[in-house]
Computed example of a mutant assay.
Amino acid sequence: MLKRLFDFVVAGLGLLILFPVMLVVALLIRRRLGSPVLFRQVRPGVSGKPFRMVKFRTMRDALDAQDNPLPDDQRMTPFGAFLRASSLDELPELWNVLKGDMSLVGPRPLLMEYLPLYSAEQYRRHEVRPGVTGWAQINGRNALSWEDKFKLDVWYVENRSFWLDLKILFLTVKKVIRKDGISAAGEATMSKFSGNRP
């Protein structure tokens, strides 16, 4: 209950205080990347229940001859890379926190298509609400391997506490300032998870 109350209050205040920043970011995205300004995608929440996550758009529309999106590195622009490096693209997720779909701290919500690929241990990351930031994010972010990332997610599930959340939020600010672990080696963001079940 304390965690949910904290999430609700901080997300509400964050949306109010950061509204001018979000408005400027939205206008810049509209000018440089076009519409839509927001990126919405269904992601798995607690217990794998789907919800619609909202972020600021960071990539341009670019399709191949078969109308499939080009790889991330070909759609990412310097402006989009800046939004990701500064984590400004994550600000709309405060709305998801306010609604209760997400928490400020928890395992990052990944793709729905990954659900059947997890081992039983890895699936434990869905025992809690997904977060805007998390234990894996302050310990390597996208520079981590999928296996290491999931181990850190499960560690958080087993050791979560209000004080650990405060520590993660504090260290997240430091990580954002230093721009650590923004992408995996040789990737614009992170390579896809293909499963590792025996």
Results as ranks from 00 to 15, higher is better:
residue 4 R to L: 11
residue 7 D to H: 11
residue 8 F to S: 13
residue 9 V to C: 13
residue 9 V to E: 00
residue 10 V to P: 02
residue 11 A to V: 11
residue 11 A to H: 13
residue 12 G to Y: 10
residue 12 G to D: 10
residue 13 L to I: 15
residue 13 L to H: 03
residue 13 L to S: 10
residue 14 G to V: 13
residue 16 L to D: 00
residue 16 L to P: 04
residue 16 L to I: 15
residue 17 I to N: 01
residue 17 I to H: 01
residue 21 V to N: 02
residue 21 V to L: 15
residue 21 V to S: 01
residue 22 M to P: 10
residue 23 L to E: 01
residue 23 L to T: 14
residue 23 L to A: 15
residue 24 V to P: 03
residue 24 V to Q: 02
residue 24 V to F: 13
residue 25 V to P: 07
residue 26 A to M: 09
residue 27 L to F: 13
residue 27 L to S: 02
residue 27 L to C: 13
residue 28 L to M: 14
residue 29 I to H: 07
residue 29 I to E: 05
residue 30 R to K: 15
residue 31 R to V: 12
residue 31 R to Q: 11
residue 31 R to T: 08
residue 33 L to S: 10
residue 33 L to K: 12
residue 34 G to F: 11
residue 35 S to P: 00
residue 36 P to L: 09
residue 37 V to Q: 02
residue 37 V to S: 03
residue 39 F to K: 05
residue 41 Q to T: 11
residue 42 V to R: 11
residue 43 R to T: 04
residue 44 P to L: 02
residue 46 V to K: 15
residue 47 S to K: 14
residue 47 S to M: 06
residue 49 K to E: 14
residue 50 P to A: 03
residue 51 F to S: 06
residue 51 F to N: 08
residue 51 F to R: 09
residue 52 R to W: 00
residue 52 R to M: 09
residue 52 R to G: 00
residue 53 M to Q: 02
residue 53 M to T: 00
residue 53 M to K: 01
residue 54 V to T: 15
residue 54 V to P: 00
residue 56 F to V: 04
residue 58 T to R: 04
residue 60 R to E: 06
residue 61 D to Y: 06
residue 65 A to M: 07
residue 66 Q to A: 15
residue 67 D to P: 00
residue 72 D to V: 06
residue 73 D to W: 10
residue 73 D to F: 07
residue 74 Q to E: 15
residue 75 R to S: 07
residue 76 M to D: 11
residue 76 M to F: 03
residue 77 T to V: 10
residue 77 T to K: 07
residue 78 P to G: 05
residue 80 G to V: 10
residue 80 G to N: 08
residue 81 A to E: 14
residue 81 A to G: 07
residue 82 F to Q: 02
residue 83 L to C: 11
residue 83 L to G: 07
residue 87 S to Y: 05
residue 88 L to Y: 08
residue 90 E to N: 10
residue 91 L to K: 08
residue 93 E to A: 05
residue 93 E to G: 13
residue 95 W to T: 05
